[in-house]
């Protein structure tokens, strides 16, 4: 089986995000970067699927500046086999990313594309679904599993995705409003992952060393024949309205009095 997995370079969620004084973007100096956390879950799942279905291959794809090599390398250090960087400097909207990925998928012909449900920088939650439609594939968004992250199945690193005996279909439990829905998708399929699918592994030192020798192919949007001008432009970025901290109350009685008499909510 061939599995394509996407990794986006994003601001580390532990870094303090500040808006630029000219409201054009956020301040990027002094900010740490890493792979989108959802994409690490996608990589982990890709590796589990590969190892349960040998011989298989995991290809990690990122779209971004040359710096995104680092996030591809971390996917390779987790265990992915090779990388592809579609190199582009500057902003790309999710639609352009989806159309670039469409070309990469046409070239690589994977059985499965695994992506994060959401990139925690732009918080769009659209790229996987766009790509599925452009490819004419079935999709299962927000992939999860019935077992918890504390379960023996998870400790044994079992894949949450369940393939049919003939490897023509995959069953996916998905987090939707009101519960877990199970869908069966024909391969090739597009799956976006949610937080509860697995706990991603850490790269071991030997694997980090090995990853340095794994190949990363570079592609360019122009060579792929994709016009990347955005359908959705960011015209302004501002700080969120601040919520002023309230007061500390000494005890429950005072709390209830305030909620009843001042806030009038109980």
């Amino acid at each position: 089986m061939k599995i394509l997995v996407t990794v986006k370079r994003v601001e580390d969620y532990e870094s303090k995000i500040k808006v630029k004084p000219d409201n054009s973007w956020i301040v990027t100096e002094g900010v740490n970067y890493r792979a989108n956390p959802f994409d690490e879950i996608a990589v982990e799942e890709a590796l589990r699927v590969r190892d349960a279905n040998a011989p298989s291959e995991v290809v990690a794809v990122s779209i971004g500046s040359g710096a995104a090599q680092a996030e591809i390398r971390s996917a390779l250090a987790m265990g992915a086999d090779r990388g592809i960087l579609v190199k582009h400097d500057g902003f790309l909207d999710s639609d352009a990313v989806a159309r670039l990925l469409q070309k990469v998928v046409a070239k690589e012909a994977p059985d499965l594309v695994l992506m994060g449900k959401q990139a925690v920088d732009v918080d769009d939650n659209v790229t996987g679904q766009l790509l599925a439609e452009y490819l004419g594939w079935g999709q299962a968004t927000f992939a999860s599993k019935k077992e918890s992250l504390e379960s023996p199945e998870e400790k044994a690193k079992k894949p949450g995705l369940r393939f049919g005996a003939d490897k023509k279909t995959v069953q996916v439990a998905r987090e939707v409003d009101g519960g877990l829905e199970v869908l069966e998708v024909q391969l090739p399929a597009l799956i976006t992952v949610d937080l509860r699918l697995n706990v991603p592994r850490y790269a071991s030192l030997p694997n980090i060393m090995k990853a340095k020798k794994k190949p990363i192919e570079e592609l360019a949007p122009a060579a792929l024949g994709v016009d990347v001008s955005p359908k959705v432009k960011v015209v302004r970025v501002e700080a969120p309205p601040a919520r002023t901290a309230g007061i500390k109350v000494p005890d429950v009685a005072t709390l209830v009095k305030k909620l009843h008499e001042d806030a009038k909510v109980v």
């Binding site: 999710s94 359908k231 959705v232």
Partner: peptide
């Protein structure tokens, strides 16, 4: 932008060659 809306909005956008502003 519920689970249902998030699931289908981008597919609708792709079919209509539309840009999608989410959430």
């Amino acid at each position: 932008a519920t689970a249902y809306g998030k699931d289908i909005a981008p597919r609708i956008a792709a079919k209509l060659a539309a840009g999608v502003a989410s959430d």
